[in-house]
Design a protein around this nucleic acid. Structure first.
Length: 581
RNA sequence: GUCCCGGUAGCUCAGCUGGAUAGAGCGUUCGCCUCCUAAGCGGAAGGUCGGCGGUUCGAAUCCGCCCCGGGACGCCA
């Protein structure tokens, strides 16, 4: 409808100002229903260009506006806005359009947009997902679904950091716990993984492999803690020691015990959360396939690398980064950044029009160096888009529910899901802009009242279901179906009904806008507003057994259309649609 | 110090590619169930949109400077 009106106003504008290069003219929904359905600022924008008063331009535009039976009234208001009021037919047509499109209402035709990849969560498989990862999961999943609804082809990917130092530290942690279970008592470094899940993994490793990895530990392993500034070097030395003690085959098994267990747990956790991926991309596969070597060689060949103090540096500063970055450490190990260069290059080579990475906001400083690397490799860095997600803070009883990563006792996503349920968790995570801190109110998320926005929307859906259940009881054996003729909806004249229809009509615009801005929270806002319109209508008017005859059919049809739109919006956020509450 | 993100009602936040009288929820307060789910609805009070300049017919929105809060600045990931 918006584009129809835009075309009308554009053709009038061309006639009014034939010699002028037209600036963009906007058509927006009116905030105040008394103004009509849509408003255009065309006269205000054109006034100066054609040297006439805004109201004068508006009058000329209106006079030249092509007739259209979808427009009932055109008025000039305020400083020169042109307000459109839709005809009853155009308004009521939305209701039938919703029911005809069903699940597809609000969706653009598939394939009309670009081919996209959304990479999200991608947490290191060194421990269970925590509440910060949860927000990335909920945001990424909703974003991907919204983009898909807007017509894009979307692949969802989890980048598995299964190589590198952090995984080695995990393997070491598992082995040390394993040794402790075998009666030895090596010192457990404070910067190794402390969580109790590490001991669980060690226990099942021992059950499966018995004493196979019980290597007598050397003296240094039993020594007192090292000074703080040598802790990392000490950890690296311990890893080296473990590798040698266990041999490469043994080390691989311990390594895999940690990785597989935790990755399985993450997969299950996300699956239960309603978050699915098309691919789980292994970092190690980049190393194994030589992709990292090739990326480094390409940078080397194009003169973007240099040696300094034993390390290999990428000259990212000439591409806008603050300073140059190390890709290969002094000890010969590649940095995380090295595989990330290869990974992103590889993603762009896969042919996506655009690759969207969802990162924790603490990684924002990382953006310039990745883009620098892509530019250096000859890619258009604009094809990589980073969406940052701020962390969430939990509140319980008005108090901050503190999490401490140091002790390994942090709040996991699973614990949160168990406390508030998947629906509330999914909704709360995305109801605010993702790039802003989120105060997650646990009490509110579990409260069964209209204060709770999830219940508020789900209750609107359930109420409609309840009405239809009762219609069915009164009409046993009949199957409800919407009327085929628009005239059947003409009894819908109440202000609450027209307001609700307006909500249904703007849903496709909301989906498109949320996709364009990468802001699923717009869907959450819409759900609140559409639910409010339903509740207001429900409280003031009865649906069943009303007279005259056609009124019940008309109201049930609007109710059915509303239920459809609520369901479509809730699905986009991964929130369930309970038929009774 | 450099960079990023914020500052809108008592609280939590929408609104930000400029548009009409700045919105929602909570909280406060006054009402509404013999009626399809009160897990709901309606009314009232509550604002210098951090400050000062600028651009514009028009600024919460764009630009500049300043104040305040949070975060990032490793041969970690």
């Amino acid at each position: 409808m918006k584009t129809i009106l835009a075309d009308l106003i554009l053709s009038a504008a061309r006639a009014v100002a034939p010699d002028v290069l037209l600036p963009p003219l906007s058509i927006d929904r009116c905030r105040d229903p008394r103004h009509g359905d849509f408003a255009s600022n065309a006269a205000l924008v054109l006034a100066k260009l054609v040297g006439r008063s805004p109201r004068g331009v508006a009058e000329a535009l209106v006079a030249l506006l092509p007739a259209d039976d979808r427009v009932a009234r055109v008025e000039i208001a305020g400083p020169g806005f042109i307000n459109f009021t839709l005809s009853a037919g155009a308004t009521l047509g939305t209701v039938l359009a919703v029911l005809q499109s069903g699940h597809g209402y609000g969706r653009s035709p598939a394939g009309s947009g670009a081919r996209l990849q959304v990479e999200f969560v991608s947490a290191n498989p060194t421990g269970p997902l925590h509440i910060g990862h949860g927000r990335g999961a909920a945001y990424g999943a909703a974003l991907a679904d919204v983009l898909e609804a807007a017509g894009h082809q979307v692949d969802r990917e989890y980048y598995v950091n299964d190589a590198g130092r952090q995984m080695d530290i995990l393997a070491l942690s598992v082995w040390l716990r394993y040794l402790a279970l075998g009666g030895q008592n090596p010192t457990f470094p404070p910067n190794a993984y402390q969580g109790s899940y590490v001991s669980d993994i060690a226990r099942s490793l021992r059950e499966r492999e018995r004493e196979r990895f019980d290597v007598p530990v050397c003296g240094t392993l039993l020594e007192a803690p090292v000074p703080d500034d040598e802790r990392e070097e000490y950890l690296d030395a311990l890893i080296e020691h473990a590798r040698m003690s266990l041999g490469s085959a043994g080390w691989r098994i311990v390594h895999a015990a940690g990785l597989d267990t935790i990755l399985d747990d993450i997969r299950a956790d996300l699956h239960e959360f309603g978050v699915e991926f098309q691919s789980w991309f292994s970092e190690r596969s980049l190393t194994d396939s030589g992709a990292v070597d090739r990326a480094i060689e390409r940078l080397e060949a194009s003169g973007h690398l240099y040696r300094k103090e034993g390390a290999l540096w990428f000259r990212s500063s000439i591409f806008g980064d603050e300073k140059d970055r190390v890709v290969e450490r002094e000890n010969g190990q590649r940095t995380y950044f090295a595989s990330d260069i290869a990974y992103h290059a590889q993603k762009l080579e896969r042919g996506y029009d655009r690759v969207i990475d969802v990162w924790g906001a603490d990684h924002h400083g990382y953006i310039p160096r990745v883009k620098a690397a892509l530019t250096a490799l000859g890619f258009d860095a604009e094809r990589l888009e980073i969406q940052l997600v701020q962390f969430a803070t939990l509140y319980r009883g008005g108090q901050r529910a503190q999490m401490s990563t140091r002790s390994g006792e942090f709040v996991t996503l699973r614990e949160l899901r168990e406390e508030v349920g998947n629906d509330a968790a999914r909704y709360f995570y995305v109801m605010r802009r993702s790039d802003q801190h989120l105060d997650f109110d646990l009490d509110l998320a579990t409260s069964q009242s209209s204060d709770n926005p999830v219940y508020y929307a789900q209750y609107a859906y359930a109420r409609i279901c309840s009405v239809f259940r009762q219609w069915q009881e009164a009409n046993p054996g009949l199957a409800w179906s919407p009327p085929a003729q628009l005239e059947a909806l003409s009894p819908l004249v109440e202000p609450e009904e027209l307001a609700l229809i307006t909500e249904l009509a703007r849903y496709p615009e909301v989906v498109a806008s949320a996709a364009r801005a990468r802001e699923p929270h717009q869907i959450a806002n819409f759900l609140r507003e559409a639910s409010a319109a339903l509740h207001a209508w429900y409280n003031n008017h009865k649906f069943l057994g009303v007279s005259p005859d056609g009124l019940e059919v008309a109201r049930l049809t609007l109710a059915a259309a509303t239920r459809q739109v609520l369901a479509n919006a809730l699905h986009l956020l991964g929130v369930g649609t309970p038929e009774r509450m």
